[in-house]
Nucleic acid binder design. Structure first.
Lengths: 205, 205
DNA sequence: GCTCCGATGTATCGAGTCGATATATCGACC
DNA sequence: GGTCGATATATCGACTCGATACATCGGAGC
């Protein structure tokens, strides 16, 4: 769900593709990554869906030297158009800054609520949690409980797999599975702390 | 690296697609998953590369009732050919059992050694470890150390991201990152135990 | 000044994966 | 006899990744 990440970041601030990519890999760290090969198509998809609009197409090709003091807008435009053909095809230093639309905000909340309902993908949940502040307490609690249930199920299956494959499993595989279940247990405890904190705040209102 | 998982499973036993899928999602659990949409193309790729060969195309369409006692092989074949066209296109209960070739064994070891050299993908490493028993101690130690280095780097980046984004981060995101770094720390400790065990055995020889 | 390099920036391509779906058979249960 | 769920192979469209192409800018070094 790259769309969710894009919309979430653009909700806070208008950004262009390259900057978006940097924030995805730095700020959101390994929670989302994403490459240009998926980012730019995603931006076009979202723009086509009316969730984004190109706020500003900042042509950095505009020379630094001052434009003649005629104040003529026509001259500006002519110069702009004249420069365009120098770009043989795509690319270059042209910035395309995107902003989120009302439709985009709606889509964002839609994705934030429903993503991860089917599919217990870790990265999707991380992304949802990273933007959980945009949800009301009830939806947030629902999301956390749903995730908890998924992890409990995963734990059950993992334990069954360990019990079933006893003896057949070599040292490395069993160590891997053991460590995996411990990690899942800790994830559940962590979720429980988040849920408890959420309910505490609910009571205090 | 679905190929690695397939080759690893077929190294132990000849299997057909559906059974392979079951083992991938049950035995190897959430370490690998894989869907039919990637499994069958992968099988065809491996077969085309000469890493696998179809050991047995078990036509379950063969009727259970005994063939007339003529002992005529020609009759058998004719009946077999006659039944074929009843399958309009693909699918059905026909089993195609695959076996690994010498070329496949080579490819397996190649993948086992080199996979995960670039890209610190968790699932790839898990898969490598699950088949680590097929490597010699030296290669195994190298693999573990390489993974350790990747996790340490990930930890450093994560800590920098937390320090950099202090204050700007809301409660949910910081909790997520905190929990992420703790998990990575535990992964490193676990790796250290595996490395230590490996070196202990090395000494005892 | 000049040139080369690395960061900035948009974009596409091929290959691989997923989830959904189509097709078909089998055994079991009512 | 008829439906249902498991077994089985296969493809489709949508999405993602990593590599690559193209293009410009700023600075470091000569």
């Amino acid at each position: 769900m790259l769309e969710l990440a894009i919309l979430g970041l653009l909700k806070e601030q208008d950004l262009h593709g390259y900057e978006l990519k940097k924030r995805l890999s730095e700020t959101l760290g390994p929670l989302s990554s994403a490459s240009f090969g998926s980012l730019y198509p995603a931006l076009r998809r979202l723009e086509a869906a009316g969730a984004l609009k190109a706020v500003e197409a900042n042509e950095l090709l505009v020379p630094a030297r001052a434009v003649p003091m005629t104040g003529s807008l026509g001259g500006e435009l002519a110069a702009f158009r004249a420069r365009k053909p120098t770009r043989t095809s795509s690319g270059g230093r042209t910035k395309k800054v995107y902003g989120i639309t009302t439709r985009g905000e709606e889509l964002f909340h839609e994705l934030l609520r429903t993503a991860g309902e089917s599919s217990d993908d870790d990265r999707t949940f991380n992304l949802q949690l990273a933007f959980a502040r945009h949800l009301d307490r009830e939806a947030r609690l629902g999301m956390l409980e749903r995730r908890r249930a998924q992890l409990v199920e995963r734990l059950t299956k993992a334990r069954t797999a360990i019990r079933t494959g006893r003896d057949r499993l070599d040292m490395y595989t069993s160590s891997l599975m053991e460590h995996g279940t411990e990690t899942t247990e800790r994830d559940i405890s962590w979720l429980d702390r988040l849920i408890a904190a959420e309910k505490r705040q609910e009571d205090q209102q």
